[in-house]
Each structure stands twice: as C-alpha cells, then as structure tokens.
C-alpha cells in the first residue's frame, strides 16, 4: 500500500466533497437555461471523486507510485515553502526589494548554495532592477516599504 497515494486519493475526494457542499448551499436564481450555476461544479465534483477513488484503489493495489524518486529532500522543499510564505507576508510591510531578496536567498539555500555573499549580491541587484524597471518604466505600483524615500 502506498501511503502517499492513499493520502492524495483521499485529498481529491475531500476537494470533491467541498465543491459539492459549497455549491449545494448556493442560491440559484431562476434561469432560462434550465441549467444553472450548479450543474458544471457537480459534474466536476463527481469527476474528482471518481479520480480520487481510482487513485485510492491503485494505492491499495500498490500500482500507484511505481517510479517514485529515490530520495526526497523535504528540508529543501520546506525552506522554499518558508521563503514563499515569508515573501507574501513581508511584501507589503517591508517592501518588494527586501521581500524578493528573502525569497531569492531561501531558494539558493534550498538548492544547496552556501555562497551567501554572491547570492545576496545577485538578489539585491535583481530585486532593484526589477523594482526600478517596474515602477519607473511601466508606472506600476510595487510596495516600496523600508526603501520608501530612498529609491
């Protein structure tokens, strides 16, 4: 039995259930089409549930993960995930440039680089160029944060 496969299959069934429950509680205005906003979601929900059931079946029969990668570096995955979460929380309060640098450094670290000076320098240049290009050339708004008034 493949535990991962079982979890994925059950996850799919759970999503199918969430869709079905949310849509069932939805208000449906009278429509000429006779096919309302619930029809497609229920179709997709059934499809997902079937797919989930098939995955669970395969996981049970041990035909699911036949060529799973030999080893998974979960630590590296967690570091990038943490970088992404930090980035989305830092973006508004401290600004684009520091947030982007944090993200960049988390990725380089996860990929095994320990040349912090080089990575930091590249991150700074990249973030600054992107920030200036966006705000100056295109006139888009990016949070300045800590650098408000400096750049």
């Amino acid at each position: 039995m493949s535990v991962a496969g079982l979890l994925i299959g059950l996850g799919l069934i759970a999503i199918a259930a969430i869709i079905a429950i949310d849509v069932s509680g939805m208000r449906v205005p009278p429509v000429h089409a006779k096919v309302g906003p619930r029809f497609f979601p229920l179709l997709v929900s059934s499809g997902l549930a079937l797919a989930g059931a098939a995955v669970v079946w395969q996981a049970w029969r041990r035909t699911f993960d036949e060529d799973l990668p030999p080893a998974t570096d979960w630590f590296a995955v967690a570091v990038i995930a943490a970088g992404l979460i930090l980035h989305m929380n830092l973006l508004r309060p401290v600004g684009f440039v520091p947030a982007a640098m944090v993200l960049f450094m988390s990725v380089t670290f996860a990929f095994g680089s320990r040349s912090f000076l080089r990575d930091g320098a590249v991150a700074l240049v990249l973030a600054l160029v992107a920030y200036l290009g966006f705000t100056r050339l295109l006139g888009l708004q990016l949070p300045a944060g800590l650098l408000q008034g400096i750049i």
């Binding site: 990038i80 970088g83 992404l84 980035h87 989305m88 973006l91 684009f96 982007a100 993200l103 960049f104 450094m105 990725v107 380089t108 670290f109 996860a110 990929f111 095994g112 680089s113 990575d119 590249v122 991150a123 990249l126 973030a127 992107a130 966006f134 888009l140 990016l142």
Partner: peptide
C-alpha cells in the same frame, strides 16, 4: 547559470508577475 541562482530568479519574477 548555476541552478540556485536560476531558480531564485525564476521565483522572484514569478511572484512579481503574479502580484502585479
């Protein structure tokens, strides 16, 4: 480009594009 820097750059630009 060394992989760490390449993927670092990809994620910075991906998040930038999605945010904007």
């Amino acid at each position: 480009i060394p992989q760490p820097l390449l993927y670092g750059g990809i994620l910075v630009f991906s998040t930038l594009g999605v945010y904007s």
